[in-house]
Amino acid sequence: MTILKTIIVDDEPLALKLLAAKLKKVPNVEVIAQCSNGREAINAVIELAPDLLFLDIQMPGLSGLDVVKQLQNDTMPLIVFATAYEQYALEAFDAYAVDYVLKPIDDERIQRAVDRALERFAIKSDEQSENKREVIGAIAHIDQKHDKTVTWMADESTHQDPQSVDIKNRKIVIKDRDEIHLLKQQDIQWIDAAGDYVCVHALGETHVKRCTLKEMLVELDETQFKRVHRSTIVNLDFIDKVIPHTKGEFFLMMGEYDKIKVSRNYKDVVKTFLTN
């Protein structure tokens, strides 16, 4: 029998206790951690590598959607949102095959979510390892519902002439809900891919940009930004610590909170960085 290692996240202690009690009745689930906020959830996912994450959306600080944005695509578990969210968001989750349970949570809905997770977990393919793609697509769809006006966050035009702007000084243009951000490359810490989207982490915020990782690499200074996983790029200037992991892998500490996994295929990037 397949057992899904599961982490549950909710900022309300009673809701967390109730969800744990209901999941205890499900034979295919083993709850390995309970988290009361988004930061705890991110750390637990990195350390424990769960198969499934029951994640409350509305939490102070980092919301459930923020947690997804800050998890690496290649290390993100299957997601089930626990929510009392607006109908348009639920429609987005349905459209992108993102599972959710409505609050107040009932046993039947939990069992259905676990059954779906088991079906997806059994699929051994690249599709299975890209759990972030569907969720980011739904988040982008939700954000589009909020778009009303466009606020320019800088005086420069978004139409940058590649011949007249040095690549190091070329800004990254991101339309994020009702704003357009022009990000300086030196402010970007790391970038993670999720299908046709990338999550750009800069100045303590995460922006979702519609483009592939390959397209993103063309815009960046290749001497400063290096690929450390098939879906992850880091800015070398933000690496504070390198932590050896199992089987030749590494973790990179990027600032106070972000911990990025380096796969074996890209370990030479870290070795070169350390020896220069």
Rank of each mutant, 00 (worst) to 15 (best):
228 V>M: 05
261 K>A: 02
251 F>Y: 11
235 N>T: 06
254 M>K: 06
245 H>F: 15
242 V>N: 05
242 V>T: 06
244 P>A: 09
263 S>Y: 04
218 V>S: 12
210 R>A: 04
261 K>P: 01
210 R>H: 07
253 M>T: 11
250 F>N: 10
263 S>H: 04
243 I>R: 03
227 R>W: 00
245 H>Q: 14
235 N>K: 13
228 V>H: 08
260 I>E: 01
228 V>D: 06
264 R>T: 14
230 R>N: 11
227 R>T: 06
234 V>Q: 07
212 T>V: 08
248 G>F: 02
244 P>K: 07
232 T>S: 11
235 N>P: 09
238 F>E: 01
225 F>Q: 00
232 T>M: 15
254 M>H: 03
258 D>E: 07
255 G>Q: 12
224 Q>E: 12
221 D>R: 05
243 I>Y: 02
234 V>A: 10
256 E>T: 03
227 R>G: 02
250 F>I: 08
256 E>Y: 00
222 E>F: 13
245 H>R: 12
243 I>C: 03
235 N>D: 15
224 Q>S: 11
263 S>A: 08
240 D>A: 03
221 D>C: 07
259 K>P: 06
258 D>R: 04
224 Q>V: 12
228 V>E: 07
254 M>L: 14
218 V>Y: 14
240 D>C: 05
260 I>Q: 03
260 I>D: 01
257 Y>P: 07
233 I>H: 02
210 R>K: 11
225 F>P: 03
259 K>E: 12
213 L>H: 11
240 D>G: 08
219 E>K: 10
235 N>L: 12
249 E>Y: 03
250 F>Q: 04
227 R>K: 12
246 T>N: 10
223 T>R: 06
226 K>S: 08
232 T>E: 07
252 L>R: 01
213 L>G: 08
243 I>S: 07
230 R>P: 03
245 H>L: 13
257 Y>L: 15
246 T>G: 04
257 Y>M: 14
224 Q>A: 12
220 L>P: 05
249 E>N: 10
253 M>I: 11
211 C>I: 05
224 Q>C: 12
224 Q>M: 13
221 D>Y: 08
253 M>W: 05
239 I>H: 03
260 I>L: 01
222 E>Q: 15
264 R>L: 04
249 E>Q: 11
253 M>P: 00
218 V>T: 15
212 T>E: 06
237 D>M: 10
228 V>S: 09
236 L>D: 13
262 V>K: 01
243 I>P: 02
220 L>A: 01
249 E>T: 11
221 D>E: 13
232 T>H: 07
220 L>E: 03
238 F>P: 02
246 T>V: 13
226 K>Y: 03
245 H>I: 00
231 S>K: 08
238 F>Q: 01
214 K>R: 11
211 C>R: 11
234 V>R: 07
256 E>V: 04
237 D>K: 15
251 F>C: 00
232 T>P: 09
238 F>I: 01
256 E>D: 08
245 H>P: 03
212 T>P: 11
220 L>D: 05
250 F>L: 06
238 F>Y: 05
252 L>I: 00
242 V>C: 04
239 I>F: 09
256 E>K: 08
259 K>C: 10
221 D>I: 05
260 I>S: 00
258 D>C: 07
224 Q>T: 15
219 E>Q: 14
253 M>D: 09
221 D>K: 08
263 S>I: 06
258 D>K: 08
221 D>M: 04
254 M>W: 06
214 K>W: 05
249 E>P: 03
